[in-house]
Design a binder for these strands. Sequence first.
DNA 1: GTTTATTGATTGAACGTTCAATAAACAACT
DNA 2: AGTTGTTTATTGAACGTTCAATCAATAAAC
Lengths: 204, 204
Amino acid sequence: MPKVGMEPIRRQQLINATMAAIDEVGLAEATIMRIARHAGVSAGIISHYFGGKDGLLEATMRQILTDLSDAISARRRALNEDSPKAHISAIIEGNFDRTQVTGPAAKTWLAFWASSMHKPMLQRLQNVNDRRLYANLCYQFRRVLPQIEARNAARGLAAMIDGLWLRGALTPEGLDAEKARHLALHYLDQLLAHHEYQHSAPAH
Amino acid sequence: MPKVGMEPIRRQQLINATMAAIDEVGLAEATIMRIARHAGVSAGIISHYFGGKDGLLEATMRQILTDLSDAISARRRALNEDSPKAHISAIIEGNFDRTQVTGPAAKTWLAFWASSMHKPMLQRLQNVNDRRLYANLCYQFRRVLPQIEARNAARGLAAMIDGLWLRGALTPEGLDAEKARHLALHYLDQLLAHHEYQHSAPAH
DNA sequence: GTTTATTGATTGAACGTTCAATAAACAACT
DNA sequence: AGTTGTTTATTGAACGTTCAATCAATAAAC
């Protein structure tokens, strides 16, 4: 049933099928036959469009990172104030975006995370994304905190976000996005309140 | 070279070899032969002592969890005060114990974490350990905070600890235990300070 | 001589990749 | 409008590899 212009459609189908398969049986048992069956195509097509299994996995991780990045950017662009707290809140809420946090994406994310320890290409992707998050947080915190404190705040908040993700992916019920958001935002309040206190009541 | 009473020695050798192999090439490529070579024995011995690869992996995860538990228990037993803060600090410091945080153990830990999403036995082990940590934190926080706040504090601190672990396992340089401890303890101070403030200066 | 410990070749299953075959869609030409 | 040739899309069987598990053989210790 070949039609022209199938490439972008098939690529997307196969990426989605990859996440579905990983969600279902894990990365170790996500064979190309299982992924192909999920997408309703034959196994051979994967090598045709992605050059092999590794290419498909890389493309899948790329998409997850892009989606996350987009979710954060969209929220930051929609802000109507420019305060550090508003920006950081947007970053937090983007990280717990529905599309990111739900089922397949979250488990695939964690699977790639573990896998990236020993696959240079995945490690590179993960590293770039990580540094960007850290740099953004650092920049915003720096506007209201001394450098050392800003770096610690950025490290702490990044760890908190990742930890909530991790625990969300592991619990069978999935991540409670609302609770996670609340905990992260509360922590952010504490990080910033510490500053407010220093500056609004310095004589203490 | 068979001597009698080799069983406990071989079991420990193979468990250590498993962590070394996972640290070296990751869980996916930690084959029976590679693990056996690390331990300086033949491949067949693994099935002999552990009934198969799965048995060895389960025993390895069990040991990591036991070591972690012991590190925490030892620090709590060594306390000379009974305050919630002292107990929770001991839990934090136990989690960032040297033997836990260094190289092989940390990467193996994360690998099992990801793997436990789809292997019921590993999931069970991870779940038991998780609930114990949460219950302990909850109990200590409950001594100085209202129940809802205590639960949130426990969830937040658990997420922070896991997040720091996760990021430590992923960075090529390994986890900076000192920084991690500092961030977690600082967060703990904030969680408790919030309470102190409410109770020691209620008229404010 | 029996038990305990260990080896390593063998087996069978599973996987990713390749490629010749096939078929629909399109283009050119009558 | 119909025929023919070319391109694009897809299949699935065959191939070679890799792995975990098995087990008969072996050797030290008792």
